[in-house]
Design a binder for these strands. Structure first.
Length: 490
DNA sequence: GAGATTCAGGGTGCCATCCG
DNA sequence: CGGATGGCACCCTGAATCTC
């Protein structure tokens, strides 16, 4: 990773005195930056408008550090009762507010509000940036804030205690670079370009959310509309049933589980299952080098797969034994304590060798490679759907660390949807399209948004990745004053 | 040798208290 | 009362070890 920190070889006594007698090394480091920059405080106002929650008995859309997706900056608030929010005072939020986490900012907790919700509020651990003080593009600013360059800077003003937090007095030291004539004969165009890329990323993220929702709805509708005769009725389990399941834990006997299970069993088109021998466990190779110079394989573990089932290709590995990802396959998370209820066990991703290259996955994942690409994609859509998240949550075993073993997965029943319905669902998840041609600054966003609507979730996710890389490169060129060719391809 | 189980310790986010 | 500060509790995961 690139670094912009300049570490001095020596520090003068006067400088330590000037710095409130702080010896912390990070306070005496500096950041490399170009000639044209401004301080963040000069660019945008911090909004401190608060809402008191005392005696407010209603629901709020609450944003805390964890609500920010650290890879994309997308914010998803949680609906909470006022009584379940731990503090009495929260920040009031509006659309297009930029939020920066004051705590462990190096994790990338920087996001932008993209929705108009009523009663949208934020925890006090976030800084709310709203009104611009200068005539700059807000999305350009947000783009800079999202990059490694800015995040590295925040490290210089973090209080390195047990709980690293941004010092509010030094908040005015953060620098924001702007393009100059060295970068481009028309620096404004670079700003616009970055703003466009940032908005494109946000739009793609929005589309992923939307398509996931559509898939959920399609699955539920198809199941509910095509039921065989008979209706669901719930009763407590009999001893014979418990003997048959050989399990005492209640998940399998819950109303919620039984209801979904019935819906699938009673589906007109019947069901299919994945035979036990199709599941293959992964491993951590004995001899390994992580993130080596000459990268050979992608490294895949449950943490590198998002909650929506998208692989984030970042870690690499070299090893002397044979790798286990050389063909397209389904990767299923079999063990995680996330969510506490096991609802994240069974999150599935598509590993496409063409997109990611050769790889190796660890024991936290099972792979299935024997089906056709289309069948694989359909299974992935089902497993990542809302209904199957609930099912897996009920089936998973364990008090703290929830898990489903291959046997549990082999017992899962999948509805046999007609081909046309399967196609409709798979099309939302996986649909590639030619990249847009003839893009220019004016039409970029408009044309991209049209294409984003048609693209599959898998492709949207991949493109978000390459756009982010592009953003990093652009900011790097601004900071190091290199010439920038405005190129719309990614 | 594959899969199941256990282990250690860093990472993370919330909460209580202090202070003006 | 609102904001600042310090600290705790437990979440979470990769991989070593165990078992069949």
């Amino acid at each position: 990773m690139r670094s912009y920190i300049i570490k001095p070889k020596s520090v003068k006594k006067s400088e330590i005195i000037k710095n409130d007698y702080i010896f912390s090394a990070s306070r005496h480091n500096n950041i490399q930056i170009n000639s044209n920059f401004d301080y963040l405080v000069n660019l945008i106002k911090i909004s401190k408008k608060s809402v008191s929650l005392t005696n407010q008995k209603k629901y709020f859309n609450y944003v805390e550090i964890g609500s920010i997706n650290t890879t994309t900056g997308y914010i998803e608030p949680t609906l909470k009762k006022s009584i379940d929010i731990s503090t009495d005072s929260v920040f009031q939020l509006e659309k297009d507010d930029i939020l920066i986490s004051t705590v462990r900012t190096y994790l990338g907790g920087i996001g932008i509000i993209n929705q108009k919700d009523q009663y949208l509020v934020a925890s006090k651990a976030l800084i709310v940036l709203r009104e611009l003080k200068k005539d700059i593009n807000k999305y350009y600013l947000f783009g800079i804030l999202r990059t490694g360059f800015f995040i590295e800077q925040t490290n210089l003003i973090l209080n390195a205690s047990m709980y690293p937090r941004m010092d509010k007095d030094s908040f005015d030291k953060l620098k924001i670079p702007f393009p100059t004539n060295t970068n481009h004969q028309n620096p404004e165009k670079v700003e616009n370009h970055i703003s466009n890329i940032v908005q494109n990323i946000i739009d793609k993220e929005e589309q992923i959310k939307l398509k996931n929702k559509q898939i959920d709805e399609l699955i539920e509708k198809e199941l509910k509309e095509k039921q065989k005769a008979g209706s669901f009725s719930y009763r407590y389990p009999k001893i014979s049933e418990i003997r048959e399941e050989t399990r005492l834990d209640t998940g399998l006997y819950e109303r919620n589980f039984k209801e979904i299970d019935f819906l699938i069993r009673n589906y007109e088109g019947g069901i299919f299952q994945i035979p036990l021998d199709k599941f293959k466990s992964g491993s951590t190779p004995k001899v390994r080098v992580f993130d080596p110079q000459n990268k050979k394989y992608k490294w895949v573990t449950p943490t590198l797969i998002t909650d929506q089932g998208n692989y984030q290709p970042s870690a690499t590995i070299n090893m002397d034994s044979k790798n286990n990802l050389s063909k397209d396959c389904i990767l299923i998370i079999n063990r995680t304590s996330k969510g506490k209820k096991g609802e994240y066990v069974g999150i599935t991703c598509f590993y496409e060798v063409n997109s990611f290259g050769l790889g190796q996955h660890n024991q936290g994942l099972y792979q299935i490679k024997d089906y056709s690409k289309f069948e694989k994609l359909f299974i992935i859509c089902l497993l990542n759907s809302k209904l199957y998240r609930k099912l897996c949550g009920c089936i998973s075993i364990g008090s703290k660390m929830k898990e489903m073993k291959s046997l549990d997965f082999a017992f899962l029943k999948f509805p046999n949807f007609p081909d046309s319905k399967q196609k409709e669902i798979v099309n939302l998840y996986y649909k590639s399209l030619e990249k847009n041609k003839n893009l220019n600054i004016e039409n970029y966003l408009e044309i991209e948004k049209i294409r984003n609507r048609k693209l599959g979730i898998f492709q949207l996710n991949l493109e978000i990745f390459s756009l982010q890389e592009q953003l990093e490169t652009l900011v790097h060129k601004i900071v190091s004053e290199e010439y920038i060719e405005i190129d719309f391809a990614y």
